[in-house]
Design a protein around this nucleic acid. Structure first.
Length: 644
RNA sequence: GCCACCGUAGCUCAGUUGGCAGAGCGGCAGUUUUGUAAACUGCGGGUCGGGGGUUCAAGUCCCUCCGGUGGCUCCA
């Protein structure tokens, strides 16, 4: 037997015989480690604890303290789910069952649908199997043999045919369960301590809607019951911040069937927030060189044929209106209109960059199943702009947009976001305009701009716009779903479609480059995000009602109205609660409405010419003169404070 | 669009094996004049999402359409 050397995380080395298993090493260190061990990491790669080590390597024994072990743990729980389903419903065919961000899923093909009751049964069966304390056993199989073995399981066959090497691994769970799987897995089911099945959903085989739809069971698993409960509690808490729920409770917006799906109506308070946000971004743009325009929400369909929207985007547009002599469509994007604004006069290189901006309302025929509250709608207003510039100005313009994004996010209190470089997809070429040189150029320009700014990003093939690559800024909503908010796109395609030109220093015609950019995203999506970010308790500068005066009895009605008048004169959005109710109720209602400041006025305040200030987060702040209060609230508004 | 689930008063929700549609909150009227998160009494309020079917009888069972939710696909 040859000797090999194992390097442990603390740097120490052990000489062992080749073929020693990680679990043996763990035992030699301490029985407690061997007991806590879930999976090994060999030269940086996850491996089973009983996988023989054949050559010198670094070895780490992972326990429940390690987050990577949690993925393996959840993967093994997914196998446990599949084993339970097969015991209960043997006719079921297995798809794939990976660990995911907050849990795991497994896809099944079965003629009848799983019901919520089935989920309970399956969960019970999972515990039953778990309590057998059976090992996850690794088996090596030859490809041709495997194809025969899985001939009854069409999805596994496909996977083996596509992915398996000549010899592949499978994992058993008891005598009746075997699954084509790369692993690694936990040593045995006794290591699984806490899991829960959460939901049933449809999912297309291999994520392609042309394929068969499978039944996906989602679940989650944690190392301890306590962590599981904490996670479920967090989910419950998150639901309370859902913008759809708060939008109704705080009377921000409503959606009415009589108008149509995905067509929200902004109620006065929501409209106030939206208007504040619009005023804010318009001012930011005015001060950074943008020119604002108004253009119509519809146009002749021919305009979109020329831009390429019709060819690539038709299915996502509301169908054309047939008029007497022409066809009109609601615009799904604002770029063609802005291009025509650029074209409205001859442009010199001295004019560039030309930055044309608009809060442009657009209409997209989103598929019904995709609609959601304010975050996914069919009528939306984009904080849109198109920058027409010379190629050598791209980098500077890109940088300026990024600076604007950073400033806006800071003002809005947004701190959690990531950059995604959205590229075209070599596989689904038909989704994009066919011009490989342009794509290569656009993608290179974006990469260079990001790299020179030193900003981290992930590349996402298949996420580009049909006309070009883009840098997207991704935010996650309260349930953890990531969406694109800000976006910056370098476009060589549309300028060429519209034969855009400027006269350069050489007196000749040159083609400008277009940068499409949205900073605040759509008003709808951004406000949905802000509602959830602040759980409806908007920063004072954005709060639809900033202060409410609460007279204790009707003796103070006149005094309260006087206070209101001073607030309104000072530009504060305020109201008075004159209802014949106890102050406790008025406070409760104002709290539930998340109004930042409550100004209680009773006999004492009236006599002293003061107001008793109560803050929604910090409670009673004591009596102040109206001037003192105004000075304080003005400071919060001017600084766009996110805390008060 | 697809799969699953859901749709009862303005809101949140009960409603048993098919047998007289309910509660709390909100609204309205009155009483109460109130000090930092819910005063008291009374009164209205419903094509049980729409349509069709089964049945002596349908909120309840079946079909279909519409809408919502969770996913999938698509996407700002």
């Amino acid at each position: 037997m040859s000797q090999i050397e194992i390097t442990l995380p603390d740097g120490s080395r052990q000489a062992v015989e080749a073929g020693t298993r990680p679990i043996d090493v763990a035992r030699s260190i301490s029985p407690r480690l061997a007991d806590a061990a879930l999976v090994a990491k060999l030269d940086g790669n996850l491996a089973d604890l009983d996988q023989p080590i054949e050559k010198s390597a670094s070895l780490e024994i992972l326990t429940a303290k390690n987050s990577e072990a949690l993925y393996v743990y959840r993967h093994s729980t997914a196998h446990l789910l599949a084993a339970a389903v097969l015991e209960l419903y043997p006719e079921t065919k297995l798809g794939i069952g990976p660990p995911i961000e907050n849990g795991f899923y497994y896809d099944f093909d079965r003629p009848t649908a799983f019901t919520p009751e089935d989920l309970e049964k399956i969960e019970k069966k999972m515990w039953e199997i778990r309590n057998r304390h059976i090992p996850y056993e690794r088996i090596f199989t030859r490809k041709e043999e495997g194809l025969k073995k899985y001939s009854e399981a069409w999805m596994k066959c496909e996977l083996i045919a596509e992915r398996a090497g000549e010899i592949f691994t499978e994992y058993t769970l008891g005598p009746a369960f075997i699954d084509f799987c790369r692993g690694p897995h936990l040593p045995d089911t006794s290591k699984i301590k806490a899991f829960k099945l959460l939901s049933i959903a449809g999912a297309y085989w291999k994520g392609d809607e042309h394929n068969k739809q499978l039944q996906r069971i989602y679940g989650t698993a944690f190392f301890t019951q306590k962590e599981l409960e904490e996670y479920l509690n967090r989910l419950e808490e998150a639901k309370k911040r859902d913008h759809r729920k708060l939008g109704k409770e705080l009377e921000l917006f409503t959606v009415n069937e009589a108008v149509g799906s995905g067509l929200p109506l902004w109620l006065p308070k929501g409209a106030t927030i939206r208007r504040l946000l619009e005023d804010y971004i318009l001012e930011k743009e005015r001060s950074t060189g943008y020119q604002h325009v108004y253009t119509p929400d519809l146009a002749k369909v021919d305009l979109y044929k020329r831009s390429g929207h019709w060819e690539h985007y038709k299915d996502d547009m509301f169908p054309p209106m047939d008029l007497e002599t022409e066809q009109m469509v609601l615009r799904p994007m604002n770029c063609p209109h802005h291009i025509l604004v650029y074209e409205s006069r001859q442009r010199s290189y001295r004019d560039l960059p030309v930055r044309i901006a608009e809060l442009g309302t657009m209409y997209r025929y989103e598929r019904s199943g995709a609609l959601s509250g304010l975050s996914r709608v069919r009528a939306m207003t984009l904080n849109d702009a198109h920058i027409f510039c010379r190629p050598d100005q791209i980098k500077e313009e890109f940088t300026k947009v990024m600076q604007l994004v950073e400033q806006v996010y800071k003002d809005l209190g947004i701190t959690q976001y990531r950059y995604r470089l959205s590229l075209h997809d070599d596989v689904k070429k038909e989704k994009y305009v066919d011009n490989p040189e342009m794509w290569a150029l656009g993608e290179r320009v974006l990469r260079e701009a990001m790299d020179s700014l030193g900003l981290p990003y992930v590349e996402a093939p298949g996420e580009a716009a049909f006309y070009g690559p883009k840098l997207d800024i991704q935010l996650a909503d309260v349930m953890g779903h990531e969406e694109t908010y800000s976006t910056i796109q370098v476009d060589f395609h549309l300028p060429s479609q519209f034969a855009l030109e400027y006269i350069a220093a050489d007196g000749k015609q040159h083609r400008p480059v277009m940068i499409h950019r949205a900073v605040v995203s759509t008003m709808e999506r951004m406000i949905a995000y802000l509602i959830e970010l602040y759980a409806g308790a908007f920063p004072v500068w954005l709060a639809p009602v900033q202060a409410i005066v609460l007279p204790i009895t009707d003796r103070q009605t006149e005094y309260a109205r006087g206070i209101l008048n001073r607030l309104e004169t000072a530009g504060i959005r305020a109201s008075v609660d004159e209802r014949n109710e106890k102050v406790n109720l008025k406070i409760r209602d104002a709290q539930l409405q998340k109004i930042p400041f409550m100004l209680v006025v009773g006999d004492r305040e009236q006599e002293n010419g003061k107001v008793a200030v109560r803050n929604r987060k910090h409670g009673d702040q004591g009596a102040k003169t109206p001037e003192e209060f105004l000075a304080g609230i003005r400071a919060l508004i001017e600084s766009k404070a996110v805390t008060e």
